[in-house]
């Protein structure tokens, strides 16, 4: 084999994650990680901007007086639990346990939908109390702006994740999805949970 052919073959194997890939993963999983990092930087930008607004404002509303922290805690519990069931679905898929995978995927989907329902409830209460995108009764207008933008973007990610889960569950039950497909859907869902950990702490608690 010529040097050029060897290099080409080596590059192809690397790209498939089969030999000397620096990350040791298949290319589609690597692309999912690239997406996760870039999407994570989007949220880092939002939260960095929120930190700027918070530090530059002479006063900031007390979140405990504005939000129902019990509801937010319950939403966090639901999302964490759905992430655990998703991890179990990935595990079951790697074992080839077909019905168990569907059961865990549906539990995860139910958690996501429940989270979205509770977020809609939270948004409704917030709007009824007078919060708008550029104004609110508690003081700095940036407070409600960042609330709607950050939680809205996260909510749209949850909705996207729930849609992916529903499609993946349907495809898996028909035998048209692989264990790797479940793993990629899982990575996205865990990312949604990971982002919420930061939002929950920085926006609702700190």
């Amino acid at each position: 084999m010529s040097d050029a052919a060897q290099i080409t073959e080596s590059a192809e194997l690397s790209w498939r994650g089969e030999t000397s890939s620096p990350f040791g993963v298949h290319w589609n999983k690597l692309m999912m990680w690239v997406f996760i990092v870039t999407d994570g930087l989007l949220f880092a930008g939002f939260l960095g901007g929120y930190g700027f607004a918070r530090l530059s404002s002479p006063q900031w509303p007390d979140q405990l007086e504005v939000f129902h922290i019990g509801v937010i805690g319950l939403m966090t519990f639901i999302l964490i639990s759905s992430s655990a069931t998703m991890a179990m679905a990935v595990r079951a898929a790697s074992r080839g346990e077909r019905t168990v995978v569907v059961r865990f995927l549906l539990m995860t989907l139910a958690g996501g939908l429940l989270f979205l329902g509770m977020q809609a409830y939270e948004w409704t209460g917030f709007i009824r109390e007078g919060a708008r995108l550029f104004s609110n009764p508690w003081g700095p207008p940036q407070f409600s702006s960042y609330f709607f933008v950050i939680t809205g973007f996260h909510g749209s990610h949850v909705l996207t994740g729930a849609t992916i889960l529903a499609i993946t569950a349907a495809r898996w039950s028909k035998g048209r999805s692989s264990a790797e497909g479940i793993e990629l859907a899982g990575l996205y869902w865990h990312f949604v949970d990971l982002v919420w950990v930061f939002i929950f702490t920085l926006f609702y608690l700190v």
Binding site: F23, W33, V37, L41, G48, G51, F52, S56
Partner: peptide
């Protein structure tokens, strides 16, 4: 996973996020 992937993801996200915040925080104050 391989350590290289974990480092790229973890350090990449956290360090970039921290740089972003600490560059703009002094202006906010």
């Amino acid at each position: 996973e391989k350590l290289s992937l974990a480092l790229v993801v973890g350090v990449g996200l956290l360090v970039t996020g921290a740089i972003l915040f600490f560059f703009i925080a002094p202006d906010a104050v």
